[in-house]
Amino acid sequence: MSAIADRLAPAAAVLPARQTSATAGLRLEMRLVSGPEWDRTIAEFDEVCQEQLHVFASARWPAVEQEPVIFLAEGEVVGGSLMMVQRLPLGIAKIAVSKWGPMLKDAASAGAADIRAGMIEALIGEYAVRRGLMLSVLPRASLAPGNPEYASLITRGFQRGSELGFPSRYIVNLRLSDGEQRKSFGQKWRYHLNKSEQAGLTFERAGAERIGEFDALYTAMTDRKKFTDHSAYETVHELMALEVEALRPELFFVRHEGEVVAGALIFKAGDRAVYLYGATNDQALPLRAGYFIHWNVIRWLRDNTTAKWYDLGGTDGFHGLHQFKKGMVGEAGIITPVPPVANYASRPLPFLFGTAAFWGRDVIHRSRAKLKGLLQPKARPDQAPISSDTSAP
């Protein structure tokens, strides 16, 4: 920690943010903090997300240097970013990555855009200019048309980089009454929900001590479907052991005649709850347990959290999953793409090495996906390609 702190020492001084007429004199202080302090601090952020948790990132990418930096204005925390510094093969260079960051503490504040711009300027100054790395920023999917956060990065000089093959995120509006929510659902989704409610299912919230039950259900499901799990499921136990209750995922189960048939793990902090993992047994499909559990999770999040939205994640290219999530998003929700990575370097070689590393990673991922599709035809994507064009409505 001390070595990282020494490297960041010049950036810990007061750093000027981009000046605008609305925020003349805005100055940000960039400060490195420990992993535990970082997780405690961002628990109150509007834009907090699982990928920005130190406990998650250190378990998911143990070989990557984690540098949690917070930003303060007049002594008050206003934002931050968990910076992941990745050494490239042969040690030829490093890249600094901010995934779903930098995050704002108060996304609705009048100066939010200027604070975000100031954080980007500070990150450029520290990682791209002073340390000579390629800086890669991946903003989260925006609820606003055109993804203003991504657009501002391109305007600032960042270059479009890697993008997901199926970038759409399916996001449910949580701030509706039961009647408004059901009316929003797609007609077929609402039909299946009605059927599930006639099947004798029950919904329950479970404590972290019951994560073993979910493990068993999840393992049995992956074995049954015979697919290789490339998710971050190995981080679940670290997340469930978090001392900060707001950051600990919620665990839910659905039962039929006393037997658990479905379960879900939900990240609930911030303004956007996220569906992390689901698991079902053989009975779940005919009972339509997936519809039942999501309906009750939506109602629980509305009534027990401050989250405004429920992010269902993507589809990995499966049309059936697209139809299911699209019906749940309905008329009141949003389907919006995750933008491409935005890359910036102040020198040619870091940009060249960093871009080549992303290209090589993308080639490997595409090759693995094609091989998986050949070996496991049921795992082959069947959804039409969707653009990550952030200018699309």
Score class of each variant (00 low, 15 high):
Met103Phe: 02
Met103Asn: 07
Leu104His: 04
Leu104Lys: 04
Leu104Cys: 01
Lys105Val: 01
Lys105His: 05
Lys105Gln: 09
Asp106Val: 00
Asp106Ile: 03
Asp106Cys: 02
Ala107Arg: 03
Ala107Glu: 01
Ala108His: 11
Ser109Lys: 06
Ser109His: 00
Ser109Gln: 06
Ala110Tyr: 00
Ala110Glu: 05
Ala110Lys: 02
Gly111Asn: 09
Gly111Gln: 10
Gly111Asp: 10
Ala112Asn: 10
Ala112Phe: 06
Ala113Arg: 03
Ala113Gln: 09
Asp114His: 03
Asp114Ile: 00
Asp114Lys: 03
Ile115Met: 05
Ile115Cys: 06
Ala117Pro: 00
Gly118Lys: 08
Gly118Val: 14
Met119Asp: 02
Met119Val: 05
Ile120Glu: 05
Ile120Cys: 09
Ile120Asp: 00
Glu121Leu: 13
Glu121Lys: 13
Glu121Ala: 14
Glu121Tyr: 04
Ala122Ile: 05
Leu123Cys: 09
Leu123Gly: 08
Ile124Gln: 11
Ile124His: 04
Gly125Leu: 06
Gly125Ile: 01
Glu126Ala: 09
Ala128Arg: 07
Val129Asp: 02
Val129Asn: 05
Arg130Asp: 05
Arg130Ala: 04
Arg130Glu: 07
Arg131Ser: 08
Arg131Pro: 03
Gly132Gln: 11
Gly132Asn: 06
Met134Tyr: 13
Met134Trp: 11
Met134Gly: 13
Leu135Asp: 12
Leu135Ala: 12
Leu135Ile: 11
Ser136Tyr: 04
Ser136Cys: 11
Val137Asn: 15
Val137Ser: 12
Pro139Ala: 15
Arg140Val: 10
Arg140Ile: 10
Ala141Ser: 12
Ala141Cys: 14
Ala141Val: 15
